[in-house]
Design a protein around this nucleic acid. Sequence first.
DNA 1: TACTTTGTTTAGTTGTTACTAAACGAACAG
DNA 2: CTGTTCGTTTAGTAACAACTAAACAAAGTA
Lengths: 174, 174
Amino acid sequence: MSELEDIKQNFVTGMSGISQFWGLPKGVGAIFGVLYLSPEPLSLDELVQQTGLTKGAISTNVRALARMGLIHSVQRLGDRKDYYQAEADFYKSIRSILKERQNNEFNQAVASVAETLEKLEAGAEASEPEHVFLIERVRALKDFFAALDTLSNAVARLDSLGLNTVQTVLKILK
Amino acid sequence: MSELEDIKQNFVTGMSGISQFWGLPKGVGAIFGVLYLSPEPLSLDELVQQTGLTKGAISTNVRALARMGLIHSVQRLGDRKDYYQAEADFYKSIRSILKERQNNEFNQAVASVAETLEKLEAGAEASEPEHVFLIERVRALKDFFAALDTLSNAVARLDSLGLNTVQTVLKILK
DNA sequence: TACTTTGTTTAGTTGTTACTAAACGAACAG
DNA sequence: CTGTTCGTTTAGTAACAACTAAACAAAGTA
């Protein structure tokens, strides 16, 4: 039980906390934490051993992490095992996360707001006071989502620019 | 069952979806949706009627919404009831949400990453290859979190500037 | 063919969370 | 003080999500 192992363990615990803060299973954070601190790719069995989770849990969580681009699976010649390693470039991960977000329920819900607005504007009684109010409100919300989307796209573009650029650009905002 | 009511209902459903996408109870989204489409502040009982939830659920969800700054309670003279109205300025809401985020588990976990780094750098065997690797990795993560924080603060500052400024600033990023 | 070694899927368990129903408390009215 | 009208809190419930254990599938090896 070296001090180093202690530090690692503490780090993994912190990653678990961050993970469930984002609404993800804490196992996801633990797996990423272990991989992130490993110089070598790890096999599924090594992850079982180092996280204390079972094969099943590792299997599903690892898939989620790969879908987000936070880890990658690597194959070794003449070895049937899958190995996994953490993506060290977080901006690359951000891009794939935001890209995946395009096809999910959130954008679907956002689309339904736009649909609501269209229906309202097509309404015959569009001159009634309450109707005007509704249109104004829903349009404001739609604009807000559009702004969020713009911001999201801008952030997604930062991956190729590196950290310095981010900080430089953000200073402009101050 | 007018067409207008239909449209409203559809909107509220969409808000519920967005709500649970962000990891919040769907009741939160429903309540906000109803309030957002109401020109007048609504009482707790009116919310019970329009959302189908019970008083208890409304009571707790309304508190969460108020804490996030998404709605406000208003008092009427000579009326003991509490009335609630939606905050129409979303940038104002964003600021209070990000402000509240300062004191939660996320920053606590982020702090533990910084702590990990300090421990590693204080280690005696800091010249060993694996130790160097660990320090490098943890420092990269800490820097990434710092960039996120900077971005978050920048966004929080946008509330006083309005939508046009946001879009203007974001164009710089392109 | 049978036997291993891998990863995935399924069934069942546990723990968590949002909700309902009802008790409670506070504040006013008579 | 009694009764009423609010909002909150609590106890219990139902739904859900993450995990374990074990069956399964796939693909190589002897």
